[in-house]
Nucleic acid binder design. Structure first.
Length: 574
RNA sequence: GCAUCGAUGGUCUAGUGGUAUGACUUAGGCCUUCCAAGCCUAUAGCCCGGGUUCAAUUCCCGGUCGAUGCACCA
């Protein structure tokens, strides 16, 4: 079979040659961490994004939103990215080496250096030697190297902006609008597909670590006390290969487990997380990820964010890169919404009415201002406030006003027990976040679809892409480039296009060569117009994977292809 | 970011201090009645900048990109 060590080279070679993925702006030498999607790559990417939409928008009923890529600073102060998404660095004045300032300090016995401010760190390291050139650093400047790209909004750079490092924040900042849109009820979800940016220090590994990448994220807002998914039965019996914390600690392989069982035995924190694990499994397999090269690994306690209740990565096996995290599914609790509540001062909660309004009794103290006013004059207001906040005894009570104790007798206020009705309560929802790296999914699908096989002593390269993902869905080929065959073929192309099928016409070279050309880019079906077509208006339809052919009528072939692409018919059933 | 190595048509490759070999691909033509057949023709290349030199794709320095190791990293 294939020498696996260079499968990456083969795929990237094919991707470059045939217009899937190109290094960006090659005429100026490209830039690491950025790629261009060529004609077939863009098409395939869109197909994968639409497959994603089929699950999250059509099946789940969550609507998509689209927020700016540039966000103002407050957003990322709240999210923690301004502070936490950066490293403290300095540059050695002697050798110009960039260094991690906190690492230098810690190497010389300072503990907790990573949480110190830049000035404290600068003071600490000025007498220390540079780890690269051994010169004493001296009064160097310590600065934050933030992984976010920074920009200025408007002229004169008055306002700092950042390119978003994730699409998620848009769904959080729009929370109140979304809640209103969903008519003030939980649970609801919002999704977003778009570009995110991280200024990686060293973005190697081709399209696995990009500085500009596409994310598809869903934020599902749920009641903190109701983490049973209303449609859980859909995936209750669905098997997913789980690599739990326990199994990782014991060095065991993943085990297939139904979602119902995993939740019951406590492996997965709740039904919501389990539901999206299963949905993700189904989604990834449907776009062409090999299920034997897919596992769900639970984050170990030390890699999980402190606020997260549970977190799993869908990892896809690459013969080149090993297990690659491609999707993250986390229960982020109320951390994000509370963070924005703090930063913005706005409300990030939902009002949830009780089934029956609750009665609450409360002791209420009403100060007699007519009596307090003349007695305490300027201090009357403070006395009244102190009274309202306390529960007096039978002989009144003593409050401290301006540092002095003051005794208030019962004739200066009245005490009443009040029964009030409380209709509901404010709840800050918990957030379930499935987050997909589209570019990594594309790479995984390419790697898992790529096959080489021997046919009649010749090597055949074929991308076994699912028909719905393939960039070209049908090739229409006149067997001979004459005798009226090209004309019929062009009619068939037009008919297919009218059905919304991506069809390509090719009359160049021997028929076998044309099949191979299509095989290499994953075109699932090929229609060949031959001499019989002129007699009886039938053509051959070839299946990419089996290379089998059947004869079908020209009439209605466009909609036949559409049914095959959409999976409503199978070639084997023709 | 550091260290080491590398970069020749779209792809793979030969080779050189005097502008470059072959194959595949692609395009046009001939041929061809279903899986990369054959023939003719054409297109297209020494990563970028600087230096040494009469002359640099070749030697030197810097950069970019890529590979590997270290560092870093959701």
């Amino acid at each position: 079979m294939i020498a696996m060590s260079d499968i990456y080279e083969k795929i990237m070679d094919l991707a470059k040659r045939r217009g899937f993925i190109w290094p960006t702006s090659e005429c100026y030498g490209s830039v690491a961490g950025f790629i261009d999607y060529g004609p077939l790559g863009s098409m395939m990417k869109r197909n994968i994004e639409n497959a994603w939409r089929k699950f999250y928008i059509i099946q789940e009923g969550y609507y998509e939103i689209e927020c700016p890529i540039i966000g103002q600073e407050d957003i990322f102060i709240a999210s923690g990215h301004v502070k936490g998404f950066s490293d403290k660095m300095c540059q050695c004045p002697s050798c110009r080496e960039f260094l991690r300032a906190d690492h230098i300090a810690e190497a010389h016995g300072v503990t907790g250096a990573s949480v110190l401010g830049t000035e404290d760190l600068a003071r600490l390291i000025c007498s220390l030697p540079c780890p690269a050139c051994e010169e004493v650093l001296g009064p160097v400047e310590v600065f934050n190297f933030n992984l976010m790209f920074q920009t200025a909004i408007g002229p004169g750079s008055q306002r700092r902006g950042y390119l978003r490092p994730e699409t998620a924040q848009g769904m959080f900042t729009d929370f109140q609008r979304l809640l209103r849109f969903y008519r003030d009820r939980l649970p609801f979800g919002a999704v977003q597909i778009g570009k995110s940016f991280r200024n990686e220090i060293s973005p190697r590994q081709g399209m696995i670590r990009l500085r500009e990448f596409t994310q598809a994220e869903a934020e599902i807002f749920v009641h903190p006390g109701e983490k049973d998914h209303p449609a859980f039965s859909r995936y209750e019996g669905y098997f997913v290969p789980l690599l739990s914390i326990t199994r990782q600690e014991e060095d065991l392989p993943p085990v297939n487990c139904t979602m119902g069982e995993a939740v019951r035995e406590g492996t997965i924190a709740n039904q919501y997380v389990a539901y999206y694990l299963a949905l993700t499994h189904q989604l990834l397999v449907s776009i062409g990820v090999n299920p034997d090269k897919l596992r769900f690994r639970q984050h170990l306690p030390d890699e999980r964010a402190h606020y997260a209740e549970d977190c799993w990565d869908a990892e896809v096996f690459s013969d080149r890169f090993g297990w690659v995290e491609t999707v993250g599914i986390a229960d982020r609790t109320d951390y994000d919404l509370r963070a924005h509540e703090r930063q913005s001062g706005e409300r990030f909660s939902a009002f949830i009415p009780y089934d029956i309004p609750r009665k609450e009794s409360r002791i209420r103290v009403t100060p007699d201002m007519g009596a307090l006013g003349p007695r305490f004059r300027g201090e009357a207001r403070a006395v009244a406030e102190a009274l309202c906040a306390s529960i007096p005894g039978p002989d009144g009570l003593t409050v401290t006003i301006g540092g002095k104790p003051v005794h208030i007798t019962p004739d200066l206020y009245t005490v009443k027990e009040e029964i009030s009705e409380v209709p509901g309560t404010d709840v800050v929802p918990h957030v379930i976040e499935p987050s997909y790296g589209i570019d990594r999914m594309i790479y995984a699908v390419l790697e898992h679809s790529y096959f080489e096989e021997m046919v009649d002593g010749e090597e055949r390269r074929v991308l076994r892409l699912p028909p719905g993902i393939a960039p070209v869905q049908v090739a229409v080929l006149p067997l001979m480039n004459r005798d009226g065959l090209p004309e019929i073929a062009r009619e068939i192309v037009d008919g297919a296009r009218e059905e919304g099928v991506i069809a390509e016409y090719d009359d160049s070279g021997a028929i076998g060569r044309r099949y191979r050309r299509q095989d290499e880019v994953g075109t699932p079906f090929a229609i060949t117009v031959d001499y019989e077509t002129r007699e009886d208006r039938t053509v051959t339809l070839r299946d990419r994977d089996s290379m089998r052919q059947v004869r079908v009528p020209v009439e209605g072939i466009g909609s036949l292809i559409r049914s095959l692409v959409e999976g409503r018919l199978s070639f084997a059933g023709l």
